[in-house]
Amino acid sequence: MSKTITIDGKVIPFEEGQTIMDAAMAAGIYIPHLCHQPEFTPHGSCKLCTVKVNGRNCSACTFPAMDGQDVLSETEELINDRRKITQMLFVEGNHLCPGCEKTGNCQLQAVGYHLNMLDNHFPLFYPDREVDASHPDVMLDQNRCILCTLCVRASQQEDGKNVFAISGRGIDKHLIANAESGLLKDTDLDATDRAAHICPTGAILVKRTGYQVPIGQRIYDHKEIDQVSLETEHLQHGE
């Protein structure tokens, strides 16, 4: 008999070693997430995928599925928590969508849309952050970094390089480029690297490509992130 968990009352099967997120995606159930991509080791930092497992809050992307778990995801309480988390991500950085190349293709924005987030609720930080435009083909704008570490993991796990890392603690935590100078141009990053394309926000952008698709015709302008995520990430995850 195959093992199952229950997500919002729906019984779904899972295989040994799968996380709750893996099982949910395989069953076509979207749990909001930003720091997670099925191909890379889960990091569990953005907390958007927080679900209630047998009464306790856990990150679905890191928590192993176990037989008989009762998982709650789309409850009013968790949706409100996710909206608050997204608002905190927005106020912590400088996310000015109208002036960002990534608008419409941005997962942070798309999660905001998905959660019907209409305001920031919290006071804005307006932190001072660096922009590194030194690399000929790739731009690093720390204003939009949410410290998801997807670029760190993609560089190590897919590109076989070690271009990015996270440095500092607390409010001083930030993304660094692995070079003596700290500049992207002195790393071995190429525009074709997965790390240059995986950023869920507009922190890492490939230069001269930002407006190839006009605003209004971009991924999340007409399609919700739950649908996009299940179509694309599930396939990659696949077999």
């Binding site: 969508c97 109208p98 960002c100 608008t103 419409g104 924005q109 905001g112 849309y113 998905h114 019907n116 209409l118 605003i215 302008d221 007409h222 919700e224």
Partner: peptide, 11 residues
């Protein structure tokens, strides 16, 4: 008042 998905844009 409520805004459906297609009316929510930050840009």
């Amino acid at each position: 008042p409520s805004l459906p998905y297609e009316l929510v844009h930050y840009d």
